[in-house]
Design a protein around this nucleic acid. Structure first.
Lengths: 279, 279
DNA sequence: TCAATAACAGAGCAGTGCTCTTGCAAATGG
DNA sequence: CCATTTGCAAGAGCACTGCTCTGTTATTGA
């Protein structure tokens, strides 16, 4: 028996992605409020009511686009992180942040759909929590790797801030248990700060809050990357690529991404700007 | 001559605010996409076409609401800052951040309207840049005050990060010239980091990105306030109110807001946690 | 008092999300 | 192989939206 119900299912799957592609085109062209189901069907040459066999409502289509957007930015973050040496924690942080920003600037409406105001009513659709965690996990894994390697430096001196209270510990416990094993709550809260700062500055840039305040965001973004990376405690990035133009591709150098443990000791670094933040 | 064109103008102004109030009610109830001009007119008992004499389009009504929201959050920030002693820079930073978050949690849809995805097409309406700068100026003035008082501490040790490049200096020059006189570009970029982190964490909380990650945001927010305040270089807050419940009003203690220079020396602080971040 | 003008109500247009009914083609079971 | 069930598509239609146009009424300034 050939693939049972295969023809119908195949056609259905193809039309589903065709609808999503056309919807994504309209989303990129006019933003989420400009997405019209009727316009999608019109462009695809089918009846306006036919689309409801594939997406039962407009919100469901939007949710599908949200899931895809989460997946895309997560893939961008993963790829950027993968192109760095595993022990170059500062470089991984900067490269990941740069990749997320680049994806956001390239897909502003998808970014707004995902990290802007939640469009579908009020409900946080449970289907999006999975793909949403993809990009988060890249950053979390980075923190965990650095913590387990023991390279995370305390920001100023021990005891500069009072220890976290019981409520702070409790609030961070789920986060630590979920994605940050072997990480101090102290480090976790700084990671949250860096995480939210990253998306905060991207949102401000994309949503126009730097209008007439900062005209060229690139160097400021690079600098905040360094500042927040240092705040978390990452060692400084290995290469001096952070000074270069970050908009040309993901990261110019370091195509080594297969060998993992071999890089742990690493060849002698070419430059001596290891002392960017010493502590 | 009685107030010339007074009756008509008065009625017009009254109806304008009535429309805005009803629109704000609908905005708070169902969010920006749920705001309907026809529903507003229906609720106000007038014809659907009459509203266009007051707001020529839906986007104009939204822009008016955006301006009001900027004004409201700016007023909240100003008031919180004003209730602190002028030389308690850490306290002013924390109080302002807390007030902004509180306003945001109390008016989530207005926050989303202002700091979420920009709804009207693509244009950044020029009318909003003025009210938008109100809350920004509170934070900027705080940085300037602390810088001029000479209390801003460098984060780790001098020269830990390489000096800003020429492009970084150029990018920050407009910001410094506009709102941060007598502030180093080095401090300015950290202020931008704190600024964007503040709104980043608020957006994440409001837009559901902490779902199943952080259940109780309060202590984490308090902690990031301290961390980012320290990153900028503010001295630690004077009172121990940061450990209390920040959701009960703006700030419980310190009702002194009139005397300015008299507080400069200050009464002996009651507690000894002045050494929160020493550097 | 009278013309000018601002405000208003209502009809109407094009568009939207969504539902219902009808008809057709494909897969399935005996 | 045929009858039946199922999946899919098209069209009409409903309630709603932003917005415009027309005609009418009320207010204003001289």
């Amino acid at each position: 028996m050939p693939p049972s119900t295969g023809l119908r299912a195949r056609l259905r799957a193809e039309l589903t992605v065709e609808i999503k592609d056309e919807a994504r085109r309209q989303l990129a062209a006019e933003g989420a409020p400009g997405l019209s189901l009727r316009a999608v069907t019109r462009e695809l040459g089918m009846s306006s009511s036919a689309i409801y066999r594939y997406f039962p409502s407009r919100d469901d289509l939007l949710t599908a686009l949200i899931v895809d957007a989460y997946d895309a930015v997560g893939a961008a973050a993963e790829e950027a992180d993968a192109t760095c040496r595993r022990d170059d924690y500062g470089g991984r942080w900067c490269a990941t942040g740069r990749a997320i920003r680049r994806w956001s600037l390239d897909n502003p409406h998808e970014y707004a759909l995902v990290y802007g105001s939640p469009v579908p009513g009020y409900r946080a659709p449970e289907d999006t929590v999975g793909p949403a965690s993809r990009v988060t996990l890249v950053l979390a894994r980075l923190v965990v790797d650095a913590a387990q390697a023991g390279v995370l430096t305390r920001p100023v001196s021990d005891g500069a801030l009072p220890p976290l209270g019981a409520d702070g510990l409790a609030a961070l416990r789920t986060l630590v248990a979920l994605a940050l094993p072997d990480v101090t709550e102290d480090v976790a809260v700084r990671a949250v700060a860096a995480w939210t700062q990253l998306f905060g500055i991207i949102s401000f840039e994309l949503f126009g809050h730097f209008h007439r305040v900062i005209d060229e965001v690139d160097p400021v973004f690079e600098r905040t990357l360094l500042e927040m990376g240092r705040l978390v405690g990452f060692p400084p990035p290995r290469t001096d690529a952070t000074r270069g133009r970050p908009q040309d591709g993901v990261e110019p150098g370091r195509t080594t991404d297969t060998d993992d443990v071999a890089d742990r000791h690493g060849l002698p670094t070419d430059d001596e700007d290891e002392v960017w933040y010493l502590v």
